[in-house]
Design a protein around this nucleic acid. Structure first.
Lengths: 332, 332
DNA sequence: TAGTATTATGTAAGCGCTTTCATGTATAGC
DNA sequence: GCTATACATGAAAGCGCTTACATAATACTA
């Protein structure tokens, strides 16, 4: 592998000059630039990014921690983030936190030891305090889907409460009054917020919430499976269920059908996230759109702007959900 | 950030000794080691991985190129690869090739410029020759889901042909004789192999293949949608369709139902890949299992063994598919 | 106990770049 | 034509490590 030294030799200039044309960060006479470019070409030279990083203390890498690498939700997120960064010549290093405090911390430590210039964090288990502390420690980061006081400018969030509100409102508007709710784990902020939105919609229609209509699931298929079973058992007159994410909705649909119900006639279901399989389902799932890709891109833009000094405007930090009407809600 | 120099100062030893305890690659007296460890602890020292890489010309990073970052298939793959490497203290850099020759080459170039110690490639558009050439160029790599002559020891593949055979055989065994086939793009090796397997099964039952029963799709939902439409139109007596992947199967199911068919009674469908949403479908999809996670892990083991000298045995290079029976096939 | 083999540690030369500072060369203003 | 100013280039000192190679300390042999 050719080095900058050989290029400078061939071009008859100094190392510094070659470096300048590589980085294009200082004036170089056109003729010189051409000489250098030619030499690089002739040698098939590519800068050694490791050496660049060491000398400039910039790794051009961004660490991402998400809960899971698989799953439709994070796939979309990662895909869009990667595209945004690669376009800028940066690369991403990805680690999975598995919604576990220890693993999340480990992932962050790992990424820091990798000299990432910045981190994008979708973490659920670590505390706000930990994040505030991390903020002191040097490595800049932006937080996805979570609002942390005093770090608000680095948080890219969805208005989860409004999403929960919309889901239930949609059912209410379609005439449903006995509405079950299958929640995510309530210790997760987004799960809590979505539920709060649900309650707000109920309240607006003067409907009182009953604990028999609530089931705390796990954000996975199984939660939906157990959830419908429990809900239907507790109150046979339920006509609709909102599931706090699409995976649980998938489990709910399957189980409801297995119990002999026809969907959506006997039971309406609305999901949350608008994950890509939601329209492969039958009936096609009515759900709340979570613009996760756009949020990822926005996080990337934040990094590009604040860390790499690209002049970008309009960093949007709060995103709004909206309902995607498909076939899983029956009007009564 | 503390450096090795400060550690050596505090511990009262030389840089070299500190390096030795970090890397644990040369004898150090126990007392000395303890002194050094203490000093590191006191200073909160973490080695700078960039500097380590530069000095050792080892980046401890592995580049992965896949077609897409989203999609259930690659999610599983990436997840398992990441886990395997992180356990070994390595990290992965991911790039998307989008099944496009230029983008795939670009991704590879990008990863090489990032000084990856090795690459794991799931590429479809670049030629075998390009890969052989790449092999000369220095950066070692392993190829996923593709067999390249003269690089066979670096190829981790699925027996796609056998998969195609199994899919059709399953239908045949259930009494179907008029079987449509929705293929992936035939220029893709796996699509071709699966189709070959299909033909073989047909031949075994003495059934002649008809072009009216074949549709070349795109491996995406749309391919399935158009595929059923075309097939049903060409031959109304079709009783079953094999789709060369689950996404097309999803499109096929939806469209068939929209055309008024009851599944699986009127039409049986089998997919391929056993992607995670395939059992969220209705009817739950009978499909061919593609052990993509295991294959990814095997690729990782190859790298660990050959590049990082871990002593690992049993690198399996060919994986076998198997049928996953669910509810989308009707016996006649 | 001298002599040799081992083990433990230190010295210093890089790895391939970036960047500050100094120097040199054109251009402009008068 | 001469100084002031901007532009262009080079020299050299790192960035924080690893790793020969050299040397010192210890163990083993006869």
């Amino acid at each position: 592998m050719a080095t900058i030294y050989e290029v400078s030799k061939l071009a008859g200039v100094s190392l510094a000059t070659v470096s300048r044309v590589i980085n294009n960060n200082a004036p170089v006479r056109e003729a010189t630039r051409v000489k250098v470019l030619d030499a690089m070409d002739k040698l098939g030279y590519h800068p050694n990014s490791i050496a660049q990083s060491l000398a400039s203390s910039r790794s051009n890498s961004i660490g991402i921690v998400v809960s899971e690498l698989n799953g439709p939700f994070f796939g979309t997120l990662l895909s869009d983030i990667e595209t945004a960064f690669r376009r800028a010549g940066k690369h991403v290093i990805i680690a999975a936190g598995h919604s576990d405090e220890r693993l999340e911390k480990e992932s962050i430590a790992f990424l820091k030891s990798r000299n990432c210039d910045a981190l994008i964090l979708h973490v659920e288990a670590v505390s706000d305090d930990y994040l505030r502390q991390l903020n002191e420690s040097g490595t800049p980061f932006v937080i996805l889907n979570r609002f942390v006081d005093s770090l608000s400018d680095r948080c890219v969030t969805l208005n989860n409460q409004h999403g929960g509100y919309l889901a239930t409102q949609h059912l209410l508007r379609n005439g449903h009054r006995k509405i079950g709710y299958i929640s995510g784990p309530m210790w997760k902020n987004d799960a809590e917020q979505r539920y709060l939105g649900h309650l707000r919609a109920l309240a607006e229609y003067g409907i009182e919430s009953k604990s028999s209509l609530f089931y705390e699931g796990d954000f996975h298929e199984l939660g939906g499976v157990k959830g419908v079973a429990a809900l239907l058992h507790a109150d046979a007159e339920i006509t609709a269920i909102v599931c706090a994410n699409d995976e649980m909705a998938a489990g709910a649909v399957t189980t409801a059908r297995e119990q002999g119900l026809t969907l959506p006639d006997d039971l309406s279901i609305v999901g949350f996230d608008n994950v890509n399989f939601s329209h492969y389902m039958y009936p096609k799932l009515t759900t709340i759109d979570y613009p996760i890709g756009g949020m990822g891109v926005m996080a990337a833009r934040w990094v590009l702007k604040h860390i790499y000094q690209q002049k970008l405007d309009n960093i949007q930090t709060v995103f709004e959900p909206r309902v995607i009407e498909r076939d899983s809600v029956h009007s009564i």
